[in-house]
Design a protein around this nucleic acid. Structure first.
Lengths: 226, 226
DNA sequence: CTTTTTCATTTTGTTGACAATCGCGAGATG
DNA sequence: CATCTCGCGATTGTCAACAAAATGAAAAAG
């Protein structure tokens, strides 16, 4: 019946996952031109499945490919990163509104429990930006799936988050404002618990907007360089 | 300049385009199981490029693929189609807001001229729902690109519109309310010309919401069956 | 000395054959 | 007679060789 899901059943899926994480973690730098044969030797696979994976990655916007000229990792400028946050703002706002209407009580309780865990992680491991970023990712992930909007979740989880995470790893500062973000998260969950979709949408949009402004400031200060 | 070259430079791109239009036009019905060899003979290409195209289509959500079991065209339920419109509402609202800030004066004038053309087409060819639908598509297309938000335009044009158009073809009724939609379009362009982003966003959201309710009603009446 | 053109190497795109896996039907058994 | 199992056929996944195109360097011309 249920087999260990860890093993991707096809080599192309395997390649896709490897490439995706390699891009997100920065193992493959943005703008870097990558040859197919090099990737083959690095990930121990042949060009057939690799090309299939490259096609998927390109379709998701993580790679750009010019015919006969090879593929290179997409390089997102600072302004484009800001545009990404604008998209997140409206899409996650919608997700929050629909999540308020559709998440089960148990899911909301679990989400609250998750926030407690996050709080402890922030207190205990100050500066451990990585885990804090993962906690933030987990929060938004749950709301996206909680919206019960298949396509919305697919677009958020499949496209936008990977791009944002890509820069999270690189900038390492992550949100940079753990306690503030946690408070905003709690506020949003409260709205969810009250089934107040409008408020949840408003708070989520403000939350993401704040994160965007935070990054924008740091970029202007020169603390972050993209 | 960039001339929209019809001939895709690579066979995989060709296959991708063919498959995509075949799915959108209903030549390949939703839920239909399709064999690779069958597709190869139908579109005159070999399995390598085909598989690459299938991967891209799957990544875009137009196909679902189970390992070793073949691919089938995605079938979207009525409720999922409604969810698609919810996403369009927020994303195109954002697009309209940014377009109001960023479109050139010439682009806006061209858009107004396009609406004049649409008006004539509606008057002359009553019932020619197809062209009217294409006009509507053109309108939204221009605003999406006019937002100057690369990723936003990519998501709208690459993902959502193809899914919506897929059902436009199938339902054939298109928006079903040509004159009303045209008036709303004019209203939106006015907001763009005044550089009133907030108003443009509001009007666009209301416009798409109206289209959604229109379809929803017809589905409830049993006029449309999905 | 700069620019252009040509050519060779490298890399991508494509092809057809090979291997693994699944679905389905026939047969056997309770 | 129903159900379970086994095996065959068909389809998908994978591989390695072939062909085409582009990048880069070297040479020739202005």
């Amino acid at each position: 019946m249920n087999q260990p899901i860890i093993q991707s059943s096809t080599r192309a899926d395997e390649a896709f996952d490897c490439l995706q994480t390699a891009i997100v973690t920065g193992e493959l730098a943005p703008g870097e031109k990558i040859g197919e044969l090099e990737l083959c030797s690095r990930f121990e696979l042949t060009r057939g499945p690799l090309r299939e994976a490259l096609g998927r990655l390109e379709s998701r916007g993580l790679l750009v490919r010019r015919p006969h000229a090879g593929v290179k990792v997409v390089s997102v400028s600072a302004s484009e990163l800001m545009e990404l946050y604008r998209i997140r703002e409206v899409m996650e706002g919608l997700a929050a509104r629909q999540a308020a209407e559709r998440m089960t009580d148990k899911e909301i309780r679990d989400l609250q429990a998750t926030l407690d865990t996050h709080e402890k992680m922030i207190e205990e491991a100050k500066g451990q930006a990585y885990y804090q970023a993962e906690g933030d990712y987990d929060f938004h992930h749950r709301i996206a799936t909680g919206s019960r909007n298949t396509k919305l979740a697919q677009m958020l989880l499949g496209d936008l988050y990977y791009m944002v995470r890509m820069y999270r790893y690189r900038l390492s500062t992550s949100a940079g404002r753990p306690h503030m973000a946690l408070g905003e998260h709690r506020h949003i969950v409260e709205a969810l618990a009250r089934r107040d979709g409008e408020l949840a949408e408003f708070l989520m949009k403000r939350h993401i907007n704040a994160a965007r402004q935070n990054i924008e400031e740091k970029i202007k200060e020169g603390v972050l360089t993209i």
